[in-house]
């Protein structure tokens, strides 16, 4: 006959003894080990995936930078206003001021007036700030084709020589540009920098002073 305490003690001893005789089978351990090993492998594909993502982002950024610096890209064009003295190139007719407006990939050295990006403060701003007419100057002149380029003359006060590339650019922005033709009176708009930002058909011709 044993006491209850002795019984509890024996129970615990027998339990531990029997448990020790029945360990977790090696086959089970192997199966768990194999799976655990497999689960550690995805770290490499995960790293590779992250690297691919990072490389893609870098690629896009690099492409963006390259596009921004690309001379032929549209965003890289500069609007050049070149003001020339009349005796330098033109003998007749006599104009008080002559300007050469052109679109160039890079700002040229020796430009008399100003150069600005086409997509900068220029044509686009004309439409957004149209109501604030103080920022723009409206003039009426006669549009004529001059070989590949175009000219706008304002009586004998001003002659604008416009590079055909720039005119095309303005024409894209100017909604009324489809009606622009050779020998037509047009209203042209310049910003504070003197850059041509828009051309549209004039409602009425300009009356020049005689003499």
């Amino acid at each position: 006959m044993t006491t209850p305490e002795r019984f509890e003690q024996q129970l615990q001893q027998q339990y531990q003894h029997n448990k020790a005789k029945h360990p977790l089978p090696g086959a089970v351990l192997n199966a768990i080990a194999v799976r655990a090993k497999q689960r550690t492998k995805p770290a490499l594909p995960g790293l590779w995936r992250n690297m691919q993502l990072a490389m893609s982002v870098c690629g896009v950024l690099l492409l963006g930078v390259m596009l921004q610096r690309e001379p032929t890209a549209q965003a890289g064009y500069y609007h050049i206003v070149q003001i020339q003295q009349q005796e330098q190139q033109y003998q007749e007719p006599q104009y008080k001021e002559m300007q050469r407006h052109s679109l160039s990939a890079q700002a040229e050295q020796g430009v008399v007036s100003s150069a600005d990006r086409v997509d900068g403060y220029g044509m686009a701003d004309y439409f957004t700030a149209r109501a604030q007419s103080d920022n723009f100057h409206y003039q009426t002149g006669l549009l004529r084709r001059q070989q590949q380029d175009w000219e706008i003359s304002v009586c004998d006060d001003l002659l604008l020589s416009i590079d055909h590339n720039l005119l095309a650019k303005i024409a894209i922005i100017n909604l009324d540009s489809t009606a622009v033709n050779d020998g037509q009176w047009v209203e042209f708009v310049s910003n504070n920098k003197g850059q041509l930002v828009a051309i549209s058909p004039a409602k009425q011709p300009l009356q020049c002073r005689q003499g």
């Binding site: 448990k19 360990p23 089978p25």
Partner: peptide, 10 residues
């Protein structure tokens, strides 16, 4: 597994 593998199995 070393801590509790045999316990659970038994």
């Amino acid at each position: 597994i070393a801590l509790h593998g045999n316990d659970l199995y038994y």
